[in-house]
Simulated scan of single mutants.
Amino acid sequence: MTARSPIAPAADAIFPDDARAAFAAAYPDQSTKLHHGLIGHGLLTLDALATLAERMPAASVEYNLGKLPLGVRPEDTPSNGLTLGETIRTIDTNGSWAVLKNVERDPAYAALLDAALAELAPIVADRTGPMLHREAFIFLSSPGSVTPFHMDPEHNILLQIMGIKTMTVFPARDQHLVPAQKSEDFHGGGHRNLVWQDGFKAHGTAVRLEPGDAIHVPVKAPHFVENGPTVSVSLSVTWRSERSVAEGELHSFNALLRKRGLPVGTVSARPEAQGIRRLIYRIMRKLGA
């Protein structure tokens, strides 16, 4: 029997063979545009998502007015004055942005997440080990909405389902964009939004996403999103890895050292290999330091 290639396509693949090949060439450190087969999926219509949102716990949803500056403090983000269900059902006219978090807690959406990530798991395992802590998020945006400049702690693929948006992605691990202390604060529970400077824009790559397009966003690669002239719906499938966990541990270790006035260490491009520093951090955390 011939061994199956890590990028061999399935007959009903969510990610076709060219998308899997592009992902394999880019993962884990480079952003790349992909394609997918989830346009028109029944779980991803506005009615289905409004129904899902109304049964989700309050801690798993976030929504606000959508026309924001690229750099905005979390406490300055304005409410839209609507319920979440109203926000989704009238999102074509209410000027809002919403995210449904951890939709994999619903069995139907968990199956969709598992189907998508199963196609990529062999590629991921070969580079950064098994997929850990798999999650799914759904983003809904009114025409003209802006998601401010921010970063996320997961490996992420954003699949565009409805509408058009432009995501501008910046290199990960660029301390000019994300100073070391911001990473340390972030891994200690700080907000994902970043300080924006107009000079940053020249360092980013703008990627137009139409229905059927997707984009791989590396761990903590800064980005912002500008929605087009119609309602946008996007599905984000994410996972952690030993690499992303290790990076978080090392930045948290540096935060402890900095707080005590001690020299901090460098977080390398392969933090999972920095075993001694990770062990020291775990010991300190266990001892209550």
Score class of each variant (00 low, 15 high):
38 L>N: 03
67 K>C: 13
187 H>Y: 15
164 I>P: 03
279 L>C: 14
261 G>F: 08
198 D>I: 04
196 W>Q: 00
284 M>E: 10
51 T>K: 12
107 P>A: 04
186 F>G: 00
62 E>I: 07
170 F>N: 02
190 G>E: 10
144 G>C: 05
189 G>R: 04
149 F>P: 02
259 K>M: 09
212 G>K: 03
176 H>K: 15
109 Y>S: 02
208 R>W: 04
255 A>G: 07
275 G>I: 12
138 I>C: 13
117 L>C: 08
97 W>H: 01
203 H>S: 12
260 R>C: 15
111 A>D: 13
243 R>D: 12
14 I>Y: 11
16 P>Y: 04
20 R>I: 05
141 S>D: 09
75 E>I: 06
116 A>Q: 04
190 G>K: 14
273 A>M: 13
66 G>V: 05
180 A>W: 03
229 P>E: 09
19 A>L: 09
15 F>D: 00
83 T>K: 14
221 A>K: 00
190 G>F: 14
130 P>E: 11
159 L>Y: 08
65 L>C: 12
230 T>W: 08
146 V>Y: 01
168 T>H: 06
110 A>V: 12
166 T>S: 14
261 G>E: 06
164 I>G: 07
80 N>D: 14
220 K>Q: 15
128 T>Y: 08
76 D>E: 15
13 A>L: 09
141 S>W: 11
96 S>Q: 06
226 E>H: 05
211 P>W: 01
186 F>S: 00
236 S>I: 14
191 H>C: 10
51 T>W: 07
58 A>I: 10
289 A>K: 14
161 I>S: 04
18 D>F: 11
96 S>Y: 01
17 D>F: 09
165 K>I: 02
197 Q>I: 08
49 L>M: 08
193 N>F: 13
244 S>G: 06
137 F>T: 02
274 Q>P: 05
269 A>N: 06
61 V>D: 01
163 G>T: 03
145 S>F: 08
25 A>I: 09
165 K>T: 01
105 R>M: 12
115 A>Y: 10
247 E>G: 00
138 I>S: 04
109 Y>F: 15
194 L>E: 01
239 W>C: 02
49 L>Y: 07
169 V>F: 01
97 W>S: 01
137 F>N: 04
260 R>Y: 09
245 V>C: 07
214 A>S: 10
227 N>P: 02
36 H>R: 05
276 I>C: 08
63 Y>A: 00
205 T>P: 03
207 V>K: 07
21 A>C: 08
211 P>V: 01
124 V>Q: 02
272 E>P: 06
113 L>W: 07
26 A>D: 07
144 G>K: 05
259 K>E: 13
63 Y>W: 12
17 D>V: 15
171 P>A: 01
47 D>M: 04
242 E>H: 11
33 K>E: 08
223 H>I: 13
36 H>T: 09
